[in-house]
Structures are given as C-alpha cells and as structure tokens.
Nucleic acid binder design. Structure first.
Lengths: 347, 347
DNA sequence: CTGAAAGCGCTTACAG
DNA sequence: CTGAAAGCGCTTACAG
C-alpha cells in the first residue's frame, strides 16, 4: 500500500530553475524555436525529461487566445450512419493539432443550443455540425457570428451561408428510381423522413426527378412522411399498402426506415425482393447483413466525415470565414431487396 | 455583404467597468455566490446580457487547476458495440459539468499512449478507457500516477488496480453453453477473440465452465483464437469445420465474429440455425436484423457506458482514488441462429 | 457586501 | 541567443 503521492504539476518555471535558464527560453525550446542554441536546447530537454514535464495546453490556449478544441455535434449518434460519420471525423483529426469534443443532440434543438454555448465557453476553434431537424439560420449565428468556422455535415440549413459536406442525395434517389423502373415497376412510393430535414427535400426531390425521367407520373400520395426510424418505416409501409393504387416498390428515406418497411411487409405476408421491391439509403453496415440484403444508395459516411474534418481544418487555418460545399457521391448498391437478383418482380 | 465584425471577447473586466463594480464582484455573480447583494447582482446580470458575455472556461480552469474535460478513449469505434457504449457515456455526461473528448485508438497501443499524453496536457478531470488489446498496467500509470481517475469499460487490464465496468462475461458465456447443451449439442467450439483481451479470457473461461457444468468434455482444440472481426470469425469457423471431431455448435467471441462465422458456414453450404448452431455475444443492433436472427448474449452497452460515466463522475467528486467494480448482467437472447426456434439440430 | 491584489502556466514582443 | 516583463481571463483569500 504505497500512498500514492500526487506531485503538483511541473511547470516551465521548474524547468527553467533546474536548467539555469529563463522560462522564456524553456518556452522557446518547447515550441521548437530555431533561435535556441543547440547546447541550451539539449540541457533544457534533459531537464524536461528528468522532471517529467507535461505541457499545459489550457494555459497556452489562454495566452494565445486560441483553442485546440473542435466541436463534433451530432444529431443522432445511435444511428450507425452518424456513428460512422463521427469515426471519419475523429480519424481525420488525428495527427492534427485539434481534439474533438463530442455531443449528441438527439435531434433536440434546446440541447443543441446548450451545446453551442458550451462550445463558445471553450472557445472552440471550429465546429462540425450534423444539425438537429429544424435547425435554422439564426441558431447557427451563436457560432458563426463570433467567427468560429462551422461545417455542416449530411444536412444543410435553409438559408444559411455555411460550408457543408453532403452526399448527392438528389442524384442518388433519382438513380434508385430509374433502377426500379428498369425492373418494371410503374407505381412507386417514397417512404419516411420529415420535411424539416434538408435530406428529405433532396431525396424526395430526386425521387420525383427519377419518376419524371422514367416517364411515369408522380402520384400525389406517393410521398409518405414518417419519422426516420424503424417504427416510422413500418408505419409508412402500412400506409402505402392501404393506398387505392398500391405501389409495388418503394425508395426509403434511409436504411433504418427500410428495415422498418421490410418488417411491415412481412407482417402483411409479403417478402421484400419478391413481392415488393425495397431500396434504402445510406448503406449502413446492417444493410448487407439483413434479410434480404438491402439494395441501397451508398453515401460513405466515414469518407464524408473525413471530408468535413479536413474542410474545417482548412478553414481554421486560413482564419477567414469562407463558404465551401462538397458533394459526395451516392452509389446504387444492388443487393436483393429490390428483386433485381431474382429477375424483377416476383408476381 | 455586411463585413462581419468579430468582436474581441467580452471579459469580466468589461462587465465590471460597465456595471461600476469590481471584477471580483462580477466573478461572484457569475458563480452564483449568495454574498452579492440582490440589487448589485441584478445590475451585473443586466450588463452580462447587454454585452453578450460568455464565460471563459479555459481561464477558470487554469486558475482553479481543474478541468472539465473527460477523456473517452475507445479501442474500436467502428464496432457498433463500442459506439453504443460511447453513446451511453455521452448521455450520462450531459447535465454534468464535464464534456467528453473522444479518441478512437483502433486497438493501437502507440496511439493510445499518445492519447493519454494529450489527456494529461489537457489536465483531464478523468478518463473512461476501453483499453486497446495488450494494454498493461504500466501504460495506465501515465494517467493514474498523477491522480487522474480512470474507469475501465468492457475490458480489464491484468494486474491493474483500476475501477472497471464490465459485463458478466463468464456467466453469460456459461449460460450460452448450457442452452446449446440443452438443445442436444455435445461438441461445441468457441470462436474468435485473442488472448490479449481480458474479455477473451472471461468469455472462453465461461465457455469452459458451461462445458463442465453440462458434463461434457472440453476438447483442447475447441477454443479457436482469431481477430474479433468478420474475417476472423470466418477463418475460425473454417478451422472448426476442418477439425477431426467437427463441432455442431459454436459460441462466438462477439456478434461481429458470429456474422463472419455465419458467412463461412453458408460458403460451406451450411445454414446457421439449421445445420449448425451459432450464438454471438453483445447483442448489437445488427444481431436482430441479420439472417437468421442471431441468438446472442446481450450486455447492454449503452447502460454500461452510463454506469462507467457515473462511476467516473463520483470518483472525480470524491477526489481520492478508489477502486470499484460494476458487473453488468449478460442475458441470453434466443433467436434463430441457435436452432432453438426450429426444434434443435436440423440434421 | 465589495474591492485590491496575487497568481494559475503559458507566450511574445522587446532589449540587450 | 537569452532574459525581464506584461498579460491572457479568470478565482480566491484577505481587508475593510
């Protein structure tokens, strides 16, 4: 039972005393300044090792009025899609001088506002935001008005002149519809998502594009809003199946919705990929594992996260606010839920 | 194009000047001290609002030699299981005075050491660690020796007197084996995981317990190590199927390994739950979605994360190092991959 | 109840 | 090439 002694922190003054130099010199050594004579540097470094000195970033940050904290503010971390995005962000920040503080807003605007304030109290160098549904331009002002760079990820904010990294939702959705049309489907539905999310407008817009391109007509009740959850997906599918002109295929707002839709289907005695074609969106890990494997639009969340982080880093570096947009690709991944592998509609 | 002016930070001095008090008084108001006269408080608060003052936590932390940063150091954030754990931790930290800095070590010890250093440079108030495989007691010293509380999550570190929050791996594994034995299996394998991980010792140990309790004999080559990945799971299953005494059932180190094992099975023309019984471990979200739905041991990652965070918060509060352990429950969830729903072995 | 003063651990012109 | 000094934005005894 050695009583563990907690040594009070070693500072540059301790180093200076021991090495017989001033703390200015120690500071220069630590920051790698070329001004310091090699011999002096060596002596100081020896003492640094000897005393087990640890740099105090908080003190340095205060002095320089900078910060090495970056906010990673995610709308829903329980969705594996956003978790992947977070992994990408974290990965791209490794090796940079910044560390990510993470916050899960759970689509809650009040919580998001709290988080913004915390970021400011910490003088965050920048923020990557997957905005909670309903986030508006004035909410972002809390961050942008003080010159903190912000990069939106996955979702945009209406009317905001903010940088963003998003997949090509519109194009991806249109391609999914074309694929379904090629398989012979004439009556399609778009399931899930709510209008408050920018991705909904883009994906359902692409759905409409695809319908038009395929020379089909867009039925007004073909677009069925529902929360982007499994339950929402199931509800939307139930609604679709009750329609007078019953669709034979659906593009879902995201993979989670698609999972719910597949469940609802089977509760009706219908099998996805055989009796009804389903296409998801995102390509989360589960998509390939589920039964039947889900045809979906892959957007590569990890890569989008990396992009967002790199964009933020660049903006922090240049120091002046700047609006950039990166549109990532959205690729159709054909698996079995659309029925393509079984030669089209099974009925 | 209004050129956006970035106002230099408003400080308590600005508030003091404007309110006609000293900065000491402003500080007292901000910290909610009861000493301040109500009238003075009101005046100061009005100015705080008027000037849009934002508290500078970095400055306060420097002065008080405290910090509100907590490290969340995760071995593999791409595994949805650990992502769920992270969600639990973050959730429990909301409303506390601490914010989580996240780092994904990717099972890399060098990276983990780097992260520890960063935590010290930030004077972290505490650390929640899912240790990278192979982490030893001396690695933890970097954190513990300076009195920073640490809570291990999911994995222990051999010989370390550190607090930990772990599921009852041993018991869960034993129960899985009993279940399999009840279904008629006599020849079982344990697939995946490597000895460097404490969970491997515990889960494979529980496997052995279960074998003994069922009155079976533990074949020396029944425990097949492999990386805890899909590829590892597939490799382990291939190996198992090449054994002279071919097993008819397997407990897998975790669900990811189980997914790989199921794939390998189908490449051999075998179906999980029909030709071969599979049980996973963890109960990640995919487990219920996959085909066949995976029988597994649920450990409730989110709740374990919450527990770990609350334990850490308590330790930070009491201020003196203390070793506690929380053992979470591990419940058998019977789905289809074990064949129970189809009446035992299908052959 | 309020203010003056010291100090947390750094960095950065400025002198020499 | 190195040191003395000022200061980042707070908190906290201490006096009054």
């Amino acid at each position: 039972m050695s009583s563990l002694k907690i040594p009070s922190r070693v500072t540059i003054i301790d180093i200076a005393d021991r090495a017989g130099v001033s703390k200015s010199t120690v500071s220069l050594v630590i920051s790698g300044s070329p001004l310091v004579k090699a011999e002096t540097r060596r002596r100081v470094e020896a003492v640094v090792d000897e005393l087990g000195y640890v740099y105090n970033r908080g003190a340095a940050n205060l002095r320089t009025a900078r910060s090495d904290i970056v906010g990673m503010v995610i709308n829903d971390l329980t969705n594996p899609f956003f978790a992947e995005l977070a992994v990408g962000i974290e990965g791209a920040l490794q090796g940079s001088d910044y560390i990510p503080v993470i916050a899960n807003t759970g689509e809650n605007l009040a919580r998001q506002a709290q988080v913004f304030r915390t970021m400011r109290e910490h003088n965050a160098a920048g923020v990557i935001l997957c905005p909670a549904g309903g986030t508006d331009n004035v909410a972002l002002k809390e961050i942008t008005s003080v010159g903190i760079p912000i990069v939106l990820a996955m979702r945009r904010v209406a009317g905001a002149a903010a940088s963003a990294v998003v997949p090509n939702n519109r194009d991806g959705a249109a391609r999914a519809v074309e694929h379904l049309a090629r398989l012979g489907h004439r009556n399609l539905a778009f399931l899930g998502g709510v209008a408050a999310m920018s991705a909904f407008a883009e994906r359902s817009g692409g759905f409409a594009d695809g319908i038009a391109r395929a020379g089909l007509v867009l039925s007004p009740d073909a677009i069925i809003e529902a929360p982007p959850t499994k339950a929402g997906g199931a509800a939307a599918m139930n609604h679709a199946l009750s329609l007078p002109l019953k669709p034979t295929a659906a593009l879902c707002f995201n993979d989670i919705v698609a999972i719910g839709a597949v469940h609802a289907l089977s509760r009706h005695g219908l099998e996805a990929g055989v009796d009804f074609a389903i296409v998801g969106f995102d390509d989360i890990a589960e998509a390939a594992q589920m039964s039947p494997p889900l045809t979906t639009i892959a957007v590569d969340a990890t890569r989008l996260g990396e992009r967002a982080a790199r964009m933020l880093l660049r903006q922090i570096e240049i120091g002046v606010p700047r609006v950039e947009t990166y549109i990532g690709e959205a690729r159709l991944i054909v698996r079995e839920s659309c029925g393509a592998k079984r030669g089209g509609r099974g009925n």
